[in-house]
Each structure stands twice: as structure tokens, then as C-alpha cells.
Amino acid sequence: MQLNHARILLTGASGGLGQELARQLAAAGAVLLLAGRDHARLRSLSASLGNGAACVTGDLGRPAGVAALAAAARDFELNVLINNAGVGAFGLLDTQEWSTVEEVLATNLEGPIHLTHALLPWLKAQPQAAIVNIGSTFGSLPFPGFAAYSAAKAGLRGFSQALRRELADSLVAVIHVAPRAIDTPLNSAAVNALNRALKNHSDPAAEVARQIVAALRRGDGEHHFGFPERLFAWLNGVAPSLIDRGLAGKLPIVKQHSPSS
């Protein structure tokens, strides 16, 4: 897709990855509708871009928020939807509050599906359109301490694959990207400590954004970022018992750093 012809609704725009995506997309000539829950931060980001980016406030975890974003996006005449909004929740499932699990599923899975459903008739009517779903390596390599998050991201990957096949005879591209850990201020102290203990590599948000922008330009289907994580994700698909045994050795470290332990 030629980004200087793109009108993009970017959810989660005020987060670390969202801000980098906004900057790089604006630099490429795209016109942006920035969406999130913090209006002040959205306005500040919009002003910094200097290209007339618009803002809309809404909570994807609530039907009213989805309706507000969808209405604003149609008025904006979008042709690209980037489902970037998400929340994490590191902790052992049996010690997490159910409200936390609900928030993770609503924001990372139900919200993107709901918003896509609301905007799909509009997108299908455009000469060229794209839906970009920001997933995670944990959607293909589910990890202890991230049960709800892994479930949501695995669901988003499945949704992306099914929708891509459903729209194969249309002009709407469906792109799923799965970064590994991203170094942003949104990571909790416990997550950062776990990554250090496990020697997990975290990519700068600017580099992840660059790869996402490149995937949107190409318009092709599925991308896993980072090695060896993408190898382990593939291996989990063909021989999950091997991953089970490998991660069993890391479980004591996960439990040690879990904020719910």
C-alpha cells in the first residue's frame, strides 16, 4: 500500500509502540486518526506530528467505546485500521483477579474483533484497504505467567488468519504481525526483571514500528519478528511437547518474579 494515500485509524496511539508507529506513518505521508483513552496524551502526540492528525477517545473494552471509534473512523473516511491497543498482565492465573483477565481478553481480543466488525463494510467498499492486527510471539508461543495474554493473542492470530481467507476475493488486505518483547515504559518492573532473568531480548519500539510499517507497505499476510523466538514459535506448532519440557525448566524463575506469588 502507498502510505501517502492511507487514512489510518491507529488504536493504542498513546502507548510506546503506538507513538512510534504514529511518527513513522506520518513521516511516510499517511493521515492519522489517533485513538486511545488518554485525550491529553493524544492531543500532545498529534501536535508533535505536525501533519494535522486527528484524535478520538474511546475504550475498546466497552461497546460504547467501540461505537464511538467506529463512527469517528467512518467520518474520517479511513482505509486502514491498525488494531494496536493492548494491555498486559504478568502473573499466575490462579492468583489473578478475574477482572484483570476480563480486561486482557476484552482489550486484546474482543475489542479488535468488535471494531473490525463495525468497520468491515466500510473498508470493503474502498478501492484499497488494509487491517493490521498487532499480535505477539506469545500468540504462537504461549508462555507461563501470561495465560490470559497468550490466549488473547493466539485468538487474534486465529481471527487474522480466518478473516484473511474470508476476504481473499476482496480488496482488503489482512496483516498480522507478532513482535517479541518490546522495550517500552508500559512494561512493569516485574516484567523487566523477568526478561533480565530469562535473558529475553527486548526490541526498541522504533525498530518494531519500522517492521510493521514495512509489512503494511507490502500488504502481505503474517510476520513474526525476532530470532530465535520465531523459530520456537514454529517449533511449538509442530512439536509442542518439546516446548513444554523446555519451559518447565524456566517455571521457577517465572514464579519467583510473578507479582502475584
Rank of each mutant, 00 (worst) to 15 (best):
I175G: 04
L216H: 04
L119G: 02
R218S: 14
P204R: 08
L49H: 10
R196N: 10
A47E: 15
P63E: 07
N108W: 09
L21H: 00
G15F: 09
A85H: 00
T57D: 03
L105Q: 13
S202I: 01
I253F: 03
N192K: 15
L78D: 10
G29D: 13
T11D: 07
Q24L: 05
L194I: 06
V101W: 10
L198W: 08
I182Y: 06
N187G: 12
A106V: 03
R245S: 15
A248I: 11
G135I: 11
R230H: 05
L235G: 09
K153L: 06
W98F: 14
A47Q: 15
L163F: 03
A68I: 02
L216M: 07
G139R: 11
G16R: 05
K255H: 10
N187K: 14
G145C: 14
H117Q: 12
G219W: 02
F225M: 11
P112Y: 02
A13C: 09
P252L: 01
S258W: 02
Q211F: 04
F138V: 15
A215P: 01
A173M: 10
L198I: 08
L78I: 15
A147H: 08
V191C: 02
A173T: 13
H39S: 06
G226Y: 03
V66W: 05
G88E: 05
V66S: 02
L141E: 05
L9D: 10
A30P: 08
P142H: 04
L216I: 12
